[in-house]
Design a binder for these strands. Structure first.
Lengths: 236, 236
DNA sequence: CGTAAAGTTGAATTCTTTCAAACACGGTGG
DNA sequence: CCACCGTGTTTGAAAGAATTCAACTTTACG
């Protein structure tokens, strides 16, 4: 009822309930009301950019289906992957709504997003939405902080295991898994840029994980071969 | 006026303007109005915990003076430092206000905080505050993401340089620096737990940075010896 | 003054990166 | 149908970065 029961499952690292309340709020509004604010669905094909860093993007998106990745190019040309956005989740909200976006959003799978321009106006009309935004932002924050602490403290093996479990749980929460398998469009280079490793090392580590019977990535599909062992590795 | 001019200073990594708008909003309210909601100042001495992870903490804090550090113990006993909270900044807001806090807050210096219980009630009375919370959360998010990307991708030397510059700029913004020096209560172990390094390696790296004339930490005071070189190292 | 906390050092080991090269696979054009 | 091309993946060897462990020194503080 209040989401507490979900959090007592011991999934200490993932945040499967992310944005749930927000989306419920948002999506329960009458569609005519939202239409008035220019809220509408848009489709993107895989590898298509929704927007680039530097664009003036005053819009807020909810991903309805697909997979979106948020990236940024650092000053020295390195690509940094911020995070993956999965169906039901929110993205595009940033501090200064008047400022250019600090990251790019690219669709990794064919995706449908719900776009909301005029966030400020929307909040003015429905004040409770502002609180939802705050909650959603705090939720993102929690997730990012977990990535931060895990990634900074542990081995490549554990980082990858953490990321895999985290993504798996978020998808599972929405019923987007097939048993222990999920559709997985991330390339080894994406994983590397997300976790701060080299492609080569990601490759070797993935092999080791497969040899040890923990997980396997094949043909854009990720299969968790030993869920318990993976949890133990991540330390939860 | 709108904060945009502040962001054009080229401080690509730090977020000196953090929480500024929020605090302005909040602190400009008439004190009687806030008193009605139980808003009040509290003092803590150095090394004193404001609250522990697991506590039921439904409160929001603004740090007025001092230095607060947010930490968490992971399942395997390792301590993880989330971030430092500096004067003028907000902390304590988390997704599920009804849930126990996911981190501890400890004062590293004698500190004064402004405590606001009943956040939800407060937001109901003053809806624009909710939007401020969302902005503040987004701001924290941006900072954390910058830490994430910097820390995951670069060497210990650069991580430490980044952290130092970031803290320096946040303090400088409030005029809490003395030239190129700031009060610096973080111990080498805190730095290690924040950046995911060992104390030993932090120690060696700090020495190297000092030998190279970049920065120096002595008697709880940090001095930036070569600001330009530090910026170049961090890559901004 | 004595104890605990914080900082320092060296040597050996482990983890991760770098560089250079090869392989696998799907799509395209001839 | 096959050669070609590009993207993504794989491998080896060597160098570099960071950790571990164990011990020692200095500083802070009651």
């Amino acid at each position: 009822m209040n989401g507490r029961s979900n959090d007592s499952r011991g999934l200490c690292y993932s945040c499967p309930n992310r944005h749930f309340h927000f989306c419920k709020n948002l999506l329960n509004g009458s569609s005519t009301e939202f239409d008035a604010h220019g809220v509408k669905n848009m489709s993107f094909t895989a590898k298509q950019y929704l927007y680039h860093e530097g664009d003036m993007n005053h819009e807020l998106f909810v991903l309805r289906e697909g997979w979106v990745m948020l990236t940024r190019l650092s000053e020295d040309g390195e690509r940094q992957v911020f995070r993956s956005v999965l169906p039901g989740e929110l993205f595009g909200f940033q501090v200064h709504l008047q400022e250019p976006s600090i990251y790019s959003a690219i669709a990794l799978l064919d995706s449908v997003v719900c776009r909301m321009p005029n966030i400020i106006e929307l909040c003015a009309t429905r004040p409770e939405l502002a609180f939802s935004f705050a909650s959603a932002a705090a939720r993102d924050m929690m997730l990012t902080e977990r990535y931060l602490t895990h990634i900074t403290h542990y081995s490549a093996r554990r980082k990858i295991a953490f990321m895999v479990l985290e993504l798996y749980h978020r998808l599972q929460r929405r019923g987007l898994n097939r048993e222990y398998a999920i559709q997985f469009p991330l390339k080894q280079e994406d994983i590397a840029d997300m976790l701060g490793l080299t492609v080569i090392h990601v490759n070797r580590t993935l092999h080791a994980l497969k040899d040890d019977g923990l997980l396997e990535i094949h043909k854009r599909e990720l299969t968790i071969l030993n869920y318990r062992a993976l949890c133990i590795l991540v330390g939860c």
